[in-house]
Design a protein around this nucleic acid. Structure first.
Length: 575
RNA sequence: GGGCGCGUGGCCUAGCCAGGAUAUGGCACCAGCCUUCUAAGUUGGUAGUCGCGGGUUCGAAUCCCGCCGCGUCCGCCA
């Protein structure tokens, strides 16, 4: 499928190319979006070179002299060093309407591609419920999954399950040795919350009691040696935690396609194969029976640049198994994306270097996010200084519920109010996290997380509900739609923005910027509300104009719904 | 000590990768707009040395160098 603005851009670029050729100008063509009122596309002429010395303004004038009008270009202007292009409004209106009404729930989505993508995200230690500190991970990850799907890729999400480490060993020891009476009751009757107490108590005991510390160490060692009984025992300890995590994720519209246990790569011996190859590289070093790679030649700096991949007792380390996992992933997909906390930056770099030494071509693209911290500092499951994701979800629901009750309490049923509150609350949560660039620090403040006004999901959902409300009140068939009749400035701006949707998806995907989607949807919702203010739809007497406006409302509804879908946020028909 | 990331009105944030036209929007605050399609909306206003100092350039929030602040990492942990 070819979307309207792609046609327009192609036309400008190809005409510009031939103009430059004729004039003997050289240089790269950059299409920009100019400030409001100066046209739809702009080309700066600073960088064009010519034999005779001329100012950018003179060059721009030379170019537009030989530029012909066309289907897409209605007007060309020179302002300073810029050529400003004004699109033919009729062409834009007609083709945008045609495109949206043809593609419907697929509008904006890009052509199917052959490549398969694996997105690894969340991968939390299954020792307790997800907390807000790492809550960005599933939300960023799942949004990336949805963006890549919208961009036409086949996508699989994976949760790398750390079933061998010390964290799960501590948990397993607790489950095996502690009496359930010792475990404090939690306010959530959920398997992950019911289990985390074992972890918290045994990690306290671990510090105080050397014998316990030894026993936990033994669990780790046996796991790493691939002892099936131990691995199964650990599995039954963390299984309820994982079940609880899954439940929470499901509530915020996230499902993981596959859980990949770390122990797989010990069982199948692939981590040992990684060790054998790494040992043969010239960067390999040996220290008291343990093996490492010297990372200095690869630009890694710090107190200690040795990257150990084999202990003196012959067992592998977390990073070694991670390398084996990536080796496996590289053979199962064309594009790999990892969503990781910023604490994994060094490890991720070490894995990347090792993969290159193993001649792996398919190196993952990694999105690092900064931790969400509390006003007093960072969160910690061990010290029980946490806000759990479940608490945040419930708070979002409660606030949303109060809002719905305040506004609609007299009109709609309790059940309906709860449905709406769930949709609005979850939306607010996901939107608030995804609208900020992953690498920015977030200090978690309840009043900000739960602000439902302005640039927040309820605003967008509300606009969608408004559109649905208008459409549901219309009894007549929407036919003979003539978009050319829509010449109010609010209508024209809205149509232009609707036309941009595919470009936004492409950009969000190519540059891995999930936060582009929320800002685009905010733009659409704002413009729709301005249209709503300026252009009455149902009361409009002229039936042709009324039909065209109804079609515009429907087109907006489609874009809002499709866009919210990419964010994993439901689009309610009423609020 | 070193590496990496971040620093934009009182608070939050876009733009930075690919330098370019009056720096984007939101929250809060002030003043308006509901007998008309849901006011979770909308109009206007107050508010900015783009952390600081240099440099490159016709032009720097954007690129380069130095410094400051915050986060994070530098385990035979995960």
């Amino acid at each position: 499928m070819t979307y309207p603005l792609y046609e327009a851009k192609n036309e400008i670029v190809s005409k510009l190319k031939s103009a430059l050729l004729k004039l003997n100008y050289t240089g790269e063509i950059k299409l920009e979006i100019p400030p409001t009122g100066l046209g739809d596309f702009a080309v700066p002429c600073f960088s064009f070179r010519s034999k005779i010395k001329k100012s950018p303004n003179e060059k721009a004038n030379d170019i537009i002299k030989i530029f012909e009008k066309s289907v897409w270009i209605e007007k060309i202007e020179v302002k300073g060093a810029y050529i400003n292009y004004f699109l033919n409004k009729e062409t834009l209106k007609i083709s945008t309407f045609k495109s949206i009404s043809k593609e419907k729930e697929k509008y904006g989505y890009l052509d199917r591609k052959k490549e398969k993508v694996i997105v690894e995200h969340t991968s939390a230690n299954p020792n307790g419920p997800l907390h807000v500190g790492r809550a960005r991970n599933p939300i960023i990850g799942d949004t990336i999954v949805r963006i890549y799907k919208a961009a036409g890729y086949k996508v699989e999400s994976q949760f790398y399950l750390d079933d061998m480490g010390k964290q799960v060993a501590i948990l397993a020891w607790g489950v095996n040795n502690l009496d359930s009476k010792q475990i404090p009751k939690t306010k959530y009757d959920k398997p992950d919350h019911n289990t985390v107490g074992y972890y918290q108590i045994s990690s306290k005991l671990l510090k105080e009691n050397e014998e316990i510390s030894k026993q936990i160490g033994l669990i780790v060692k046996k796991s790493e040696e691939g002892d099936k009984k131990t691995i199964d025992n650990v599995h039954s300890a963390y299984a309820p935690v994982l079940e609880g995590i899954n439940e929470s994720l499901k509530r915020i519209n996230i499902t993981i396609d596959n859980y990949i246990p770390e122990s797989n790569f010990v069982k199948d011996n692939s981590s040992n194969k990684v060790v054998e190859i790494l040992k043969t590289t010239k960067y390999c070093g040996f220290e008291e029976g343990a093996y490492y790679l010297d990372m200095k030649p690869f630009g890694i700096k710090g107190r200690n640049t040795n990257f150990f991949f084999l202990r003196k007792d012959g067992t592998t380390l977390y990073a070694t198994r991670d390398i084996a996992y990536h080796l496996w992933k590289a053979n199962h997909a064309d594009i790999l994306i990892n969503v990781l906390g910023e604490d994994h930056k060094l490890e991720s770099k070490q894995v990347e270097i090792a993969l290159k030494l193993l001649k792996v071509k398919n190196i993952p693209k990694v999105i690092f996010y900064s931790f969400v911290s509390l006003p007093g500092g960072k969160m910690s499951t061990r010290r029980a200084r946490v806000v759990y994701l479940d608490e945040l979800i419930d708070e979002c629901f409660n606030i949303a519920y109060n809002e719905v009750k305040k506004r609609r309490g007299k009109e709609i049923s309790e059940k309906k109010m709860k449905e709406i509150a769930e949709i609005v609350g979850i939306g607010a949560l996901r939107y608030n996290i995804i609208k900020v660039q992953p690498e920015k620090d977030i200090i978690f403040k309840w009043e900000e997380a739960l602000n439902f006004e302005g640039n927040a999901s309820p605003f967008i959902q509300y606009s969608h509900a408004r559109a649905c409300s208008i459409l549901s009140k219309n009894q007549d068939e929407i036919k003979d739609v003539d978009p050319i009749l829509l010449n109010n400035i609010s209508e024209e701006n809205l149509i232009k923005s609707l036309a941009k949707f595919p470009l936004v998806i492409e950009e969000a995907c190519d540059s891995c910027r999930p936060h582009n989607i929320p800002s685009y949807l905010f733009e659409i919702a704002s413009q729709f509300n301005k249209f709503y203010r300026d252009c009455p739809v149902l009361p409009e007497k002229n039936k042709y104009l009324r039909n065209a406006r109804l079609a515009l409302v429907n087109a907006t509804r489609i874009v809002l719904k499709n866009g919210l879908e990419i964010l994993g946020i439901a689009a309610p028909e009423e609020m």
